[in-house]
């Protein structure tokens, strides 16, 4: 059998398709693929940032970073931050979605208010929270003192474990709306008949949640968790602006380490090595997410 030859029309369409994607591909190559490859290449050099003078060191950067305590501390911080803030986002997000799914007065206003933290700039969020956290005049310390929970103003960002807890809480506040919206959208597609059937079978509200709602949410929750895990893991702005990684390096995560190494310690090669290792860790999550998306797409 002769090899199937596409018709002239088919080839013309294919050419048009390539033409339409070409500008995107060019931009992609220039600003994403090329830098990505360079990052890996740079990680094999020792480069002093101000002069950009470099020398080939092979895998020395990687050997050095694995031996360095700072890398492991940052990785550990990164994991604590990710797990902590992600857990709160999911729990609070699902709960809030369930509440907003009910017949609430002024529901759309409530939804807007909930959504706002997600869209507001991290810079704004951090400024506001720093003001709320302010040890002398902050409203939070005032509340805590008035309610008698504490006897003395707390330093929320300057000591441990307060700093870690604070950024985890602010992270949860900033990003839980994503979970709310995603879960809410899914909740609206659960057929009411399922609940009616369960009610007829004598299931109470709690049983209905665990037997119907939760299984129906399973799919979307897995996707949300993967996506948020990836995004939380690479978070830079919020942590950098809240604590700068401090006190000392107690809240320093890998993205902050990369930034510090490149632009404060001025070792770009080493910073690239950190970035590459960080990407390798994230790759696991990314592959799982991409696999899932492709299966369903």
């Amino acid at each position: 059998m002769p090899a199937p030859r596409p018709t002239a029309l088919e080839r013309q369409y294919a050419r048009l398709g390539v033409l339409l994607i070409a500008p995107t591909v060019l931009v992609f190559c220039a600003v994403i693929v090329y830098p990505l490859v360079s990052a890996i290449y740079l990680s094999l050099f020792q480069i002093f940032t101000p002069t950009l003078q470099g020398s080939w060191v092979g895998l020395d950067n990687y050997r050095a970073l694995l031996a360095r305590g700072e890398f492991w501390t940052s990785l550990q911080n990164n994991l604590i931050w990710t797990v902590g803030t992600l857990t709160l986002q999911i729990l609070f997000g699902v709960a809030m979605a369930l509440v907003l799914h009910q017949n609430l007065w002024f529901r759309s206003l409530a939804r807007s208010l909930i959504l706002f933290p997600y869209f507001v700039s991290t810079v704004v969020a951090v400024l506001v929270w720093k003001w709320v956290f302010n040890d002398l005049y902050g409203i939070l310390n005032h509340f805590m003192l008035t309610l008698g929970i504490i006897d003395w103003p707390i330093d929320y960002l300057g000591t441990m474990p307060n700093a870690m807890i604070s950024i985890i809480l602010v992270g949860a506040w900033k990003y839980f709306p994503f979970v709310v919206i995603a879960v809410l959208a899914r909740l609206q597609t659960i057929p009411e008949a399922l609940y009616e059937a369960a009610r007829i079978d004598g299931a109470g509200p709690v049983a209905r949640f665990f037997d119907i709602t939760l299984p129906q949410l399973r799919e979307v929750l897995v996707v949300i968790i993967l996506l948020r895990a990836i995004w939380d893991f690479k978070e830079f702005d919020l942590i950098y602006l809240m604590t700068g990684g401090g006190p000392v390096i107690a809240t320093q995560t890998l993205p902050l380490l990369v930034y510090k190494e490149a632009f404060a310690v001025n070792q770009m090669g080493m910073a690239s090595a950190y970035a590459v290792v960080m990407m390798a860790i994230m790759l696991a999550f990314m592959i799982v997410y991409i696999r899932r998306t492709r299966e369903r797409g």
Binding site: P2, P4, T7, L9, E10
Partner: peptide, 8 residues
């Protein structure tokens, strides 16, 4: 209609 292309 020309919306799909025959293989041969």
């Amino acid at each position: 209609a020309g919306l799909e292309f025959p293989t041969s």
